[in-house]
Simulated scan of single mutants.
Amino acid sequence: MASPDHLFALRNNFYLGAYQAAISSAEQLRSLSAEEADERDSLVYRAYIAQGSYQLAIQDISDSASTSLQAVKFLARYLDPTENKEAVISSVKEWLNDPAIGNNSVLRLVAGIIFMHEQDYNEALKHTNAGGTMELHALNVQIYLKMHRADYAEKQLRIMQQIDEDHTLTQLATAWHDLAVGGSKIQEAYLIFQDFSEKFLMTGLVLNGKAVCCMHMGNFDEAETLLLDALTKDPRDPETLANLIVCSLHLGKSSTRYLSQLKLHHSKHMLVKRLSAAEEAFERALQSVA
């Protein structure tokens, strides 16, 4: 008989972006094995990092903590704008090359996340491609989709489906893949996010997922309603702001407020970079004919 999964609620809340609920559920967990306690702490600190509390993780996690927790600390340091990113990347590479700890699944996951942020997808896959956990397989799906290789993403998805078709990460990865493929698959992705919203807490991640599906299907009014709901949950969430900019443009509404917020809080966001590049190109074109 299988032993109960004490961390199911914590993991599920984290995967779906219910970070405060994840932190709160972790406080109720008792009588865990050393391995379970390590996973619990890793997920809790990752939830704090997802909320932007980088310094909490950096200060709380000591140098004598487990490899998994040290890896999470690297992630906090990488995302913290006051830290030296290059120094963090150098340290992560050093740890990955250590045969004693280099194969730690959380360390490989963090490396994959960091190199994906760096848009160094080949380096990311070097550490994640072997899989080993559902999170690593899900990250592989994300990386391949960013590389515009939906065919490779689908192969990873099949592995996840063979392991556990009903797993939250399998369902999420299926929705991401469906959105990338498009066409009739958009409706299937929408139904996955709809199912999440009925079973679990309605989070910004789920609302954004539904909204993107709606935009693909041309339902911009519904998308706007969903995104405004997401904005009440986190007024600074970059994906909500970016999606609202796109949605507003399609509805013929002003997107200035959302764009200002995105530029203020997330100046490195891809949409901000693209808009800045377009504005610079327009200025150069004007000067060339002046």
Rank of each mutant, 00 (worst) to 15 (best):
R40G: 02
Y258E: 09
L226E: 03
A50T: 03
S197L: 07
D164V: 04
K73D: 04
L69G: 07
A173N: 08
Q194N: 14
R77L: 12
L231S: 06
L107G: 00
T128V: 15
A37G: 03
L271N: 06
R40L: 06
A100Q: 15
P235D: 15
H167G: 06
G182N: 08
L207M: 08
I61W: 01
H216I: 00
I89N: 02
D151I: 10
Q119S: 14
A290H: 07
N84V: 10
S25P: 02
S42H: 02
S248D: 11
H250I: 01
E188V: 10
S31L: 12
S33G: 10
H117F: 14
E135F: 04
F74I: 00
K199L: 14
A100N: 13
G182C: 12
F200K: 09
F193S: 01
S276Y: 07
H137Q: 10
L145D: 03
I159A: 09
I23D: 02
A153G: 07
M217S: 13
S276V: 10
A150Y: 06
K155Q: 11
L228D: 07
F115I: 07
S24F: 10
V206A: 12
L169N: 04
T225K: 15
W176G: 01
D98I: 11
R108I: 01
L32R: 03
T174W: 05
I101H: 05
A278M: 12
I101M: 04
A21H: 08
D98W: 14
K263Q: 15
L29T: 06
P235M: 09
I163G: 05
L262N: 00
G112H: 06
I186M: 05
T128N: 04
L228Y: 10
A242T: 05
E198W: 06
A277I: 03
A285R: 12
K126T: 13
D229N: 14
F193P: 01
R77M: 12
L10Q: 02
E224W: 02
M160S: 05
A87P: 05
I159N: 02
I101G: 00
K263W: 06
A124M: 11
A223N: 00
Q261R: 12
L262F: 07
G132D: 09
L145V: 11
A47G: 00
N12W: 01
K263F: 10
E36Y: 08
E35S: 10
L249D: 11
S254N: 12
D38G: 00
A37Q: 11
K185L: 06
M134P: 01
G204L: 00
Y45R: 04
L172H: 01
N103T: 13
S90N: 12
A2T: 09
Y152P: 00
R236C: 07
N140P: 05
C214V: 02
L231Q: 15
K253L: 11
A173G: 11
S64G: 03
L241K: 03
N103R: 13
V206M: 06
Q28H: 11
R274V: 08
N243G: 03
E83K: 13
K263I: 09
L179G: 02
H117C: 10
E86G: 14
L96D: 08
A87L: 12
V181F: 03
G209N: 02
S24A: 13
N84Y: 07
Y78E: 01
Q59P: 01
I114K: 02
I89C: 05
A111C: 13
L32F: 04
M134W: 00
N12C: 10
E35D: 10
D63Y: 08
L169C: 06
Q156N: 15
H117Y: 14
G112N: 05
V272R: 11
A230Y: 00
L249K: 14
